[in-house]
């Protein structure tokens, strides 16, 4: 990667980290409700892959740990935070919440909360691309535990059968909610599982942005060239629990510390310092600027935005009635 790109991504990754940490705080303050699944520790995965792809052009879909993927695709952090606050200005107008961030304009096709649910949706998006003949690809980010759903196998089979332009990115963070991968899954290395469907696959360190980027580039190129699906497994770790209601009793603090030694942001920062592209002082300033932006713009926007109107409770259940009248009333001609 070019130095300038790495510096830009460092800024983005710091934003992604601080955004999520600020969500944690807002949740404790009860500003955010429901379930909240945070991304710290895994930032190099989304960033590395999307640097190799074309954010805003390629279609991205994921599970419920979705804030950072949305922002990386181009969603405004202010609107994502407003969504978490349940406000009308939120990316899903306060109707979705943390697990259902959407930004169709940026081709972020949403966060879904049924584990494994997005697999066939991603294949469908790829099918639509295939029919329309565009050069976009579909990218499906999911965790390792999703691969134990039937949708994984059904989708891998169809994607391979029909050579659909879809990249499956498995962020293997070693835990499915509170059960470790050794205790839930007969095959630890997830990329091996798609060999059964003749899907080419690769595995790499998910903590090092440049490593992810290099592997993702090959994966993205493979799919964009019309060779069908590809499966990329990234070995990573989430620092926080599965969601906010998780006290992490299923793993040791030592294990967590070990992973934090390989923090994706610090790996990139230290490399850029070594390359003479930044300094520790500059990094500390970046963190402060990021926090100031989050506080003064992102949080402020979410706080000050209006709630949805109760009169609009049933809006968005169906398409606007006026536009559908010919089919609802049969008076089409």
């Amino acid at each position: 990667m070019k130095i300038e790109d790495k510096k830009r991504v460092l800024r983005e990754m710091v934003l992604h980290r601080r955004f999520e940490e600020r969500c944690y705080q807002a949740y404790i303050e009860r500003k955010i409700g429901g379930f909240l699944h945070l991304y710290p520790g895994q930032e190099a995965c989304c960033n590395g892959v999307m640097e190799a792809a074309r954010p805003g052009h390629d279609y991205v879909i994921t599970g419920y740990r979705d804030h950072v993927h949305a922002i990386k695709c181009g969603a405004d952090p202010k609107e994502v935070m407003a969504e978490l606050y349940g406000k009308e200005t939120g990316s899903s107008k306060g109707r979705g919440g943390s697990m259902h961030i959407f930004d169709a304009g940026k081709r972020f096709m949403g966060g879904y909360a049924l584990v494994g649910g997005p697999f066939p949706l991603a294949a469908g998006i790829a099918k639509a691309i295939q029919l329309k003949g565009g050069d976009e690809i579909a990218i499906c980010f999911l965790g390792d535990a999703a691969n134990n759903q039937g949708t994984f196998h059904e989708t891998m089979n169809m994607a391979a059968l029909w050579k659909l332009p879809v990249l499956f990115v498995c962020e293997n963070n070693l835990y499915g909610i509170g059960t470790s991968i050794e205790r839930s899954t007969a095959v630890i290395h997830q990329h091996k599982r798609v060999a059964a469907y003749n899907i080419p696959a690769d595995e790499c360190d998910g903590q090092d942005l440049e490593v992810v980027y290099e592997h993702a580039r090959k994966a993205v190129d493979h799919v964009r060239a019309g060779n069908g699906p590809f499966f990329l497994e990234l070995m990573t770790y989430r620092y926080r629990g599965h969601s906010m209601s998780d006290s992490r009793g299923y793993r040791t603090r030592e294990e967590e510390e070990l992973w934090k030694q390989r923090d994706p942001i610090f790996i990139l920062r230290d490399r850029l310092i070594k390359e003479g592209a930044t300094t520790m002082a500059e990094f500390e300033t970046l963190e402060k600027e990021t926090d100031a932006y989050i506080e003064n713009e992102v949080i402020k926007f979410a706080e000050e935005s209006p709630e949805p109107r109760v009169e609009d409770l049933e809006k968005y259940v169906f398409a606007d009635r006026e536009t559908q009248l010919p089919w609802l009333t049969g008076k089409a001609a």
Binding site: Y59, I61, M109, G117, F119, P120, L121, A122, A123, G124, I125, A126, K127, A128, I129, Q130, L131, K132, G150, T151, E154, T155, N157, M158, L161, W162
Partner: peptide, 26 residues
């Protein structure tokens, strides 16, 4: 075959695939 698709016997899978395709106007 691109528009009239004989699917594998995977009801959950191909139904989800149809839903995903419909997001893009199919």
């Amino acid at each position: 075959p691109l528009r009239v698709m004989d699917t594998p016997i995977s009801e959950g899978g191909f139904t989800g695939l149809a839903v995903g395709a419909s997001f893009l106007g199919v």
